[in-house]
Design a protein around this nucleic acid. Structure first.
Length: 361
DNA sequence: GAGACGTGGGG
DNA sequence: TCCCCAAGTCT
């Protein structure tokens, strides 16, 4: 820890802060499904789902997931497509794939029980520094830091830390601070209290300082700097990619879909074939025939769609098309009925295209 | 360390 | 419309 941070802690009322934070959390914490008990599996699933995702969004996914995969063994035994289907619409799909990989690791290496040793837990796929600390403190009661965006924002204000929280190295600063601040009597309530405070009171936009249980401990409130902190550098602009999406019907009344590659964007999910439309070039029909390996007749544009990801934008023109081909040329492509389509995981971008499917045939 | 990696909600 | 997010991790 730097000299400046040690100075800030030397005049800080640690036990008073712990008491006020934990007292508030005990009274005001939300009643959430993953707070039913401390079962490490339940805590683990919740922490993965909550990564970069709001509580209100997670709740229904969490309940359905726990019903479908009640144990680590059940998750390990499941088909990957089944797990992705349960994750459909939640985003960041590598979380689901890593989760199942880790479940299989736990079965193979730890007799099906979540390890409570930090190094073993952190070695599991998809469990980084934050999730490791969250599981260790919440499920196993260990005084380990669990530093997420909330914790960095809250502590930036309370201790007036001016480091850029967008920089990866900054997390280490806050882990050191939490190690100095954390309650050894109730590390779970301390860590969750910090996050709950960030979610309910010490929000990014308009923090409700007048209702804050640790207002008297907050340096930023006393200096009026709560709106300036935390320091966070801006993201860069997104790139736009233009596509034509093809809803290709055959004479059996089925529609052509393809499975995306096992790595990268939307890995392992299914979609309607898309043709990238760069600057000019061949006709859509010609490009489609070449890339898909089948002849087809493209109809009028059925609609347009804009889908915004974290780092890029898809602008998609949607076309219905007809082919006389009965079997796709590629292994990863299938002609399917509507019923068969619904069994497979699709990204939201392609769910939005389904209403444009031609009814006739 | 920078960039990839989803989605839906709010101001 | 646009920008900022929301309990991060992997490469």
């Amino acid at each position: 820890m730097s000299q400046m941070q040690e100075n800030k802690l030397s005049t800080f009322d640690i036990s008073g802060f712990q008491g006020d934070l934990i007292g508030w959390y005990s009274n005001e914490k939300r009643d959430l499904p993953w707070r039913l008990n401390r079962d490490p599996y339940r805590v683990w699933i919740s922490e993965i789902m909550l990564q970069q995702t709001r509580v209100d969004t997670v709740i229904p996914f969490y309940n359905r997931f726990m019903e479908k995969f009640p144990t680590i063994q059940a998750l390990a035994d499941a088909d990957e497509q089944e797990v992705l289907k349960a994750w459909e619409g939640l985003g960041y799909y590598s979380r689901a794939r890593n989760l199942q990989t880790a479940a299989r690791e736990v079965v193979a290496l730890h007799e099906g029980k979540m390890p409570s040793v930090p190094k073993l837990l952190g070695a599991l796929k998809g469990i980084g520094p934050y999730t490791k600390g969250a599981i260790l403190s919440i499920a196993f009661g260990q005084p380990e830091p669990a530093v997420d965006g909330n914790v960095m924002r809250v502590l930036s204000r309370i201790l007036e830390i001016d480091e850029d929280i967008a920089l990866p190295k900054t997390r280490k600063t806050f882990e050191a601070l939490v190690r100095a601040l954390i309650s050894h009597e109730d590390p779970s309530s301390f860590n969750q209290g910090l996050m709950e405070l960030g979610a309910l009171i010490c929000t990014p936009q308009s923090p409700m300082c007048l209702f804050c249980p640790v207002q008297q401990h907050c340096r930023a409130f006393h200096t009026g700097r709560q709106l300036e902190l935390p320091v966070k550098s801006k993201a860069k602009k997104k790139k736009t990619i233009r596509y034509a999406a093809l809803l290709i019907h055959n004479s059996d009344g089925k529609v052509l879909i393809e499975k995306r590659p096992q790595t990268g964007l939307l890995a392992g999910l299914w979609q309607f074939p898309m043709i990238e439309m760069g600057v000019k070039g061949e006709t859509l029909e010609g490009k489609a025939a070449k890339e898909l390996g089948i002849g087809l007749e493209v109809g009028d544009k059925a609609g347009v769609l804009k889908h915004v990801f974290t780092h890029l934008i898809w602008e998609i023109d949607i076309f219905n098309a007809i082919t006389t081909v009965a079997e796709p040329a590629s292994e990863r492509m299938r002609f399917v009925t509507m019923e068969e389509m619904e069994e497979r995981p699709f990204p939201v971008s392609h769910q939005k295209m389904m209403p444009y499917l031609s009814r006739e045939q």
